[in-house]
Design a protein around this nucleic acid. Structure first.
Length: 388
DNA sequence: CTAGGGTTAG
């Protein structure tokens, strides 16, 4: 009888969690007379899904009798919210300190983290661990491996994983297509698409996003613009805008966005703005930026991009206008951080990082590279490679 | 009856 009661509490929390009602779920969780592993993990998931990772972690640390599911939940919370450094640390603690025996979910979360980090060494170790430990490379782990290798530039290994999988599904095909697109193999991406159809697998929206981005990267404008019998979603428009934009057909791109049957989002306007930079078109840039600011009024990079476009065109009045806009709206420059994998350790850094002990060496190497690039006739972009 | 996973771009 008390068990039945407990499950109904949990079900209510699950309902709130599903609807993103964190406060309501937390209140129920606090009021519960008794909690089991489900209650704790449900509440942790509720936080991670909402991006409240610190709350999730605090709860996890307090949780009595942590099971593998709860460990995996926190791990996926980190990897899916882009907290790669924390995820890596957490995984390390889980495996080394706590000696947890990983399962398919652990591998899928960790590999997904490696894919986002392009952490090839750790990813390869995980792959070996999977093979050695007698775990079958199931669809989930296999798909995560495909993406990990593709994002690390090892497209042949990605293909090999795909070929060696006992069974594949639509996500496997999509991952392989997107992986080839990412690495610039547009023709291969399209032929994999044909291979997929021959195998009787029906494409979905994600397939077309991969194909469109393949065409976009390879400049195959006409292939990418060809009609397919699907209902386009915003991401497809984003890809076609990107496609036309890269080809310098900014007028067409703008017309497409304005005539869209669905509302354009920040990604689409941002894509157009990026293309304006590439092809030096301040007029379309102003239109795109104005729309983009409606969605993201406080994103510094958008203002910087617009300002750079005007600066390159020599329109200093426009540059000043953007600067005033930023000041009015209280937009400040916030340093971005990046990370790199060194000897199985993920290290985070920012541009001009004074805490990096070997900064001088790094900048020296950059100067040498810059000079070599100039020697072979490549004009570097001063705004990207400004290293003194 | 209730908890964790893989694919989508710049």
């Amino acid at each position: 009888m008390p068990y039945r009661n407990l499950v109904s509490w949990n079900t209510m929390i699950a309902g709130y969690s599903h609807n993103g009602c964190v406060a309501e779920a937390a209140e129920l969780f606090d009021r519960m007379p008794k909690r089991d592993a489900f209650s704790w993990t449900l509440m942790i998931t509720c936080y991670t899904r909402n991006g409240e990772l610190e709350e999730a972690r605090r709860l996890f640390d307090r949780m009595p009798g942590k099971d593998l599911v709860s460990w995996n939940t926190v791990l996926s919370g980190y990897t899916q919210n882009g907290e790669m450094g924390m995820g890596s640390k957490f995984f390390d603690r889980m495996m080394r300190k706590e000696g947890k025996d990983p399962d398919w979910s652990t591998f899928a979360c960790a590999l997904s983290g490696c894919a986002n980090l392009a952490a090839l060494q750790v990813g390869t170790q995980l792959h070996n661990l999977l093979l050695k430990s007698g775990h079958i490379i199931d669809i989930f782990a296999g798909n995560a491996l495909i993406t990990m290798y593709a994002r690390c530039g090892r497209i042949l290994t990605a293909r090999q994983v795909f070929d060696e999988m006992v069974s594949v599904d639509l996500v496997s095909w999509n991952s392989l297509i997107a992986g080839h697109a990412l690495n610039g193999y547009a023709k291969a991406a399209i032929s994999i698409f044909q291979e997929m159809k021959k195998n009787g697998v029906a494409p979905d929206e994600v397939t077309f996003i991969g194909l469109l981005s393949a065409c976009s990267h390879a400049g195959m404008v006409d292939d990418g613009s060809r009609d397919y019998p699907i209902t386009p979603v915003a991401e497809h428009y984003a890809c076609v805008v990107d496609l036309l934009g890269r080809a310098g057909r900014l007028g067409e791109a703008l017309k497409l966005v304005k005539g869209m049957p669905i509302k354009a989002n920040a990604g689409i306007w941002g894509s157009l703005l990026g293309a304006c930079r590439m092809h030096k078109n301040p007029e379309v840039a102003n239109v795109a930026a104005e729309k983009l600011f409606e969605f993201e009024p406080h994103t510094t990079s958008n203002y910087v991009l617009l300002s750079n476009i005007h600066a390159e065109a020599g329109s200093w009045g426009e540059v000043e206008r953007v600067r005033v806009l930023m000041k009015e709206r209280g937009v400040w420059k916030q340093p971005a951080r990046s990370w790199i994998e060194i000897k199985n350790e993920v290290r985070s850094f920012s541009s001009d990082d004074s805490t990096e002990p070997r900064a001088a060496e790094v900048f020296m190497v950059l100067r040498v590279l810059n000079a070599q690039m100039r020697n072979i006739g490549h004009m570097s972009d001063s705004s990207l490679l400004d290293c003194g």
